[in-house]
Design a protein around this nucleic acid. Structure first.
Length: 784
RNA sequence: GGGCGCGUAGCUCAGUUGGUUAGAGCAUCUGUCUUACAAACAGAGGGUCAGAGGUUCGAGUCCUCUCGCGCCCACCA
């Protein structure tokens, strides 16, 4: 047998096989290969940061499944792409190059973005390769490349033509810091301290009406005052008018059930727009639109003497002025939560502006129904999807007043404003530099204004099945391959990526995008807190990979069931490392004792111990296979671990030793075959979780079993059937007897290898059948 | 306030449709260098299954309520 290293060294072994897999194209997708296709809609990681531990965790999960199905004989379509447009990428480039997009030339900035991305993507993708991902990296997409822009624009045109996309001037969630509209899904909450101000509005009879507000700076946008219809204090005021302090205009006092009489003074001003309720009232009561806030977050002329001030400055100045006029009669410190933009963490406003939308509100029920057609792993994650849809309050705003994104393929007629779409054969287009063909369909004019906005990054990534499929297939085949088999992702983007992909798939193809979704949890620190750079409790996967290797990291990832958050535990990673060591040692043991490994033949005559381990193996194969088929990789790992450590290593290896060192050639031979067969299967069972050590063992010891380049394209284990097999119904008693002998030795401080003269067994065991076996395994001369 | 998940040994978790004395790993303690492995092995101790009530011959598992933790959403006047 080959001379091999005594210790397993992942730092040496892992790069070797990684290069080998790439060179030999082990994971290359072959459209003509046999077997049913199993397709994965791989999440394109966002390039705005390196792979973090949460990525390592959830990408491991999908790779387990992809590897399992590959070995199960499926033709696995497992593509890779990167998400590299939109605000996150802009912010990343701004930070890296120390520039601000809105202070530089648009084209220069876009060029800088593209250059930066080209520089970093190869290094960025390396982390995913180092993790051992079995994607086909030979063709990849980026959500900003020509390929993706073309698809994104094509399907936008499709939406428009089908009437699912519309442009409208309406209140929209606006980020004054990023100076763009954003979607509801991009909001986060933040708890802030603020002042609740009681302000006097004068009534027509000169009496006071006190309203409470946290946003006095919006007084100039006040268009009504609302009270609860049953509020006795205000009932008689309904329909009358109140005068807005400082600005002097009169607004009607209206009644609406949304007013909470308990809150503040029970009278509330409605401004266009302070919050979502204002928008609802604005629409419902057809209130006038009075804009006091412009897109940079500064006060407009409407705010008169406060024009040009920031929100905070205006608030302070108005409070001061109200105080001077004795119109501010109370102030209370409160803490409330406000919506912030997830990308920049700044408070958002609601602004009236012209934006493109994709209709979603009118199809809520449909999207919920589609969700029911998808198989969710774990099932309870569907509730989050439905919960999100039920709470949706806005259509999907997809235009962004930004620079680095997929442009809308649109011009507007200068004369009549009619939309002019690009033609499909010209895609991708940039309306800022490309000219539309032909004349305005409506008025015949031939001068056009380009659309400057770009699309929300999700508007492109929600087409990820198409982005991936079209790398390898024509349009017809791509559509035939939808729905894909699996969408793997983490739970934080159910309301964005997952939901939007369902929306797009429905509008374009009237189909669900995938048959299964697999939702991973998050990684928490050992105390159960969220890991984040800012808290300083984040672990860096690159360091773990370097120190312990990918197999060990993946082993840890496999440790919690699907959808569960996991606490980071270095101990568990060490356990993975120990498993690789244990596997390596077991392989070495076989290498030392078995000259040339052979597999059992169905006609071989085996001994009871062999039959027992084969039986246990068969049970393990059945359970592991079922678990993996249900995406329950944690259960699969548990089964394999249990069999390998507690059945194979702890017992079977000890059962077979005496035969290896003894004289009975026939018994020795069948023992050799059994141990090789069983261990070979163990290595295969572990292959999806720990691809490197299993490849090393396969290549070193078992390559001659199957004429294949890699274990990862070998056949998944199946039940081993032997024509004649001894009865092992009483083998448990033999194991019990072995335990008893071990206990006896431990109690007496003897080493397990020590020979003992005789032992009286309490265990009832058939000594005729197992006497010799027990004497040999237990190294006892006599048994009673 | 709504939705979802979780609460089992010191720690991390497993417990399939309710069915003997509740399991594993880590940690602890005691032994053992035994021809794969001391990064190992053998053995031992350790649990009112968050709490209360209910259904049942029988509940960690089903139902109701309470408490605690986490996530998502709403609340923003």
């Amino acid at each position: 047998m080959k001379e091999i290293s005594k210790r397993y060294n992942p730092q040496e072994v892992e790069p070797k096989w990684r290069e080998f897999w790439e060179k030999e194209k082990i994971y290359k997708f072959n459209p003509k290969a046999k077997g049913n296709v199993f397709s994965v809609d791989t999440p394109p990681p966002n390039i705005s940061g390196r792979m973090h531990i949460g990525h390592a965790y959830s990408y491991s999960h999908e790779d387990f499944i992809a590897r399992f199905f590959r070995m199960r004989g499926f033709n696995v379509f497992y593509p890779f792409g990167t998400d590299d447009n939109g605000l996150p990428s802009e912010r990343f480039v701004e930070k890296k190059a120390n520039v601000r997009a809105n202070r530089m030339d648009r084209n220069e900035f876009i060029k800088l973005c593209i250059k930066t991305i080209q520089e970093i993507v190869p290094e960025f993708s390396k982390d995913w390769k180092n993790l051992g991902m079995s994607c086909d990296f030979s063709k990849t997409y980026s959500t900003i490349d020509d390929h993706s822009r073309k698809i994104s624009q094509k399907y936008f045109i499709d939406l428009f033509e089908k009437g699912h996309a519309y442009r409208q001037e309406a209140p929209v969630v606006w980020c004054p810091h990023c100076q763009t509209a954003i979607a509801q899904a991009e909001l986060e909450d933040k708890e802030v301290e603020t002042l609740f101000n009681d302000i006097i509005f004068k009534l027509e009879d000169k009496k006071d009406l006190i309203i409470a507000t946290t946003r006095p700076e919006l007084l100039s946008s006040c268009v009504a005052v609302f009270v609860h219809p049953n509020d006795k204090r205000y009932k008689k005021l309904i329909g009358k008018y109140a005068q807005v302090p400082i600005f002097g205009n009169k607004v009607e006092i209206l009644a609406d059930k949304k007013v909470d009489p308990e809150k503040g003074t029970g009278a509330v001003m409605c401004c266009t727009f302070g919050d979502k309720t204002d928008v609802e009232w604005f629409k419902e009561y057809k209130l006038p639109l009075v804009i006091s806030l412009e897109k940079y977050g500064k006060m407009t002329k409407q705010a008169k003497k406060y024009a040009g001030l920031s929100i905070k400055e205006a608030r302070q100045n108005i409070i001061n002025d109200l105080e001077k006029k004795k119109l501010l009669i109370g102030q209370k410190k409160i803490s409330h939560s406000v919506n912030i933009h997830e990308r920049c963490k700044n408070e958002v406003e609601i602004l009236n502006s012209l934006q493109w939308y994709i209709k979603i509100l009118d199809k809520k029920k449909k999207f919920i129904d589609l969700g029911k057609k998808i198989k969710w792993h774990p099932p309870f994650m569907r509730a989050r999807y439905e919960n999100w849809i039920n709470n949706l309050g806005w259509d999907w705003a997809i235009s962004r007043q930004r620079f680095f994104g997929v442009p809308f393929p649109i011009w507007y007629c200068e004369k009549c404003g009619e939309v002019k779409m690009a033609e499909e054969k010209d895609l991708p287009v940039d309306p800022l530099t490309d000219k539309p063909k032909g004349k305005c369909a409506k008025c015949g004019n031939s001068k056009f204004t380009p659309e400057k906005d770009v699309m929300d990054t999700w508007a492109t990534s929600s087409l990820s099945p198409q982005l991936a499929l079209r790398l390898f297939f024509d349009e017809k085949t791509s559509q035939r391959m939808t729905p894909m088999n699996l969408r793997p992702q983490a739970h934080d983007i159910i309301s964005t990526w997952l939901f939007y992909t369902v929306v797009r798939s429905y509008y374009h193809f009237d189909k669900i995008p995938w048959k299964n979704v697999m939702i991973s949890g998050h990684v928490l620190d050992p105390q159960g807190k969220k890991m984040s750079k800012s808290l300083g409790n984040a672990v860096v996967p690159q360091e773990i990979l370097e120190k312990y290797g990918s197999d060990a990291l993946r082993f840890w990832s496999a440790g919690s069931s699907l959808g569960q958050d996991i606490n980071y535990s270095e101990e568990e990673i060490k356990m993975g490392q120990r498993t690789t060591t244990k596997l390596w040692n077991a392989a070495r043991f076989i290498g030392m004792n078995v000259k040339k490994a052979e597999l059992l033949k169905s006609t071989d005559t085996i001994e009871p111990a062999d039959a027992w381990i084969i039986d246990e193996l068969n049970k393990t194969i059945a359970k592991t296979t079922k678990a993996f088929e249900n995406y329950a990789y944690a259960k699969a790992k548990e089964e394999i671990d249990g069999f390998f450590w507690s059945k194979f290593a702890d017992y079977y290896v000890e059962f077979v030793k005496y035969r290896f060192f003894g004289e009975d050639v026939k018994s020795k031979k069948v023992g050799e075959k059994t141990i090789a067969t069983v261990f070979f299967n163990i290595v295969k069972l572990y292959a999806p979780i720990m691809p490197f050590v299993t490849e090393e063992i396969f290549q070193t010891y078992f390559k001659h079993f199957e004429k294949l380049k890699s274990i990862h394209i070998s056949k998944w284990p199946e039940e081993i059937k032997l024509k004649k097999s001894p009865d092992i119904s009483d083998f448990a008693s033999a194991i019990k007897a072995v335990d008893e002998i071990r206990k006896h030795k431990t109690k007496n401080g003897l080493s397990l290898g020590a020979e003992i003269d005789s032992i009286k067994l309490k265990t009832k065991v058939n000594l005729k059948k197992y006497g010799e076996f027990l004497k040999n395994v237990g190294r006892a001369k006599h048994l009673k």
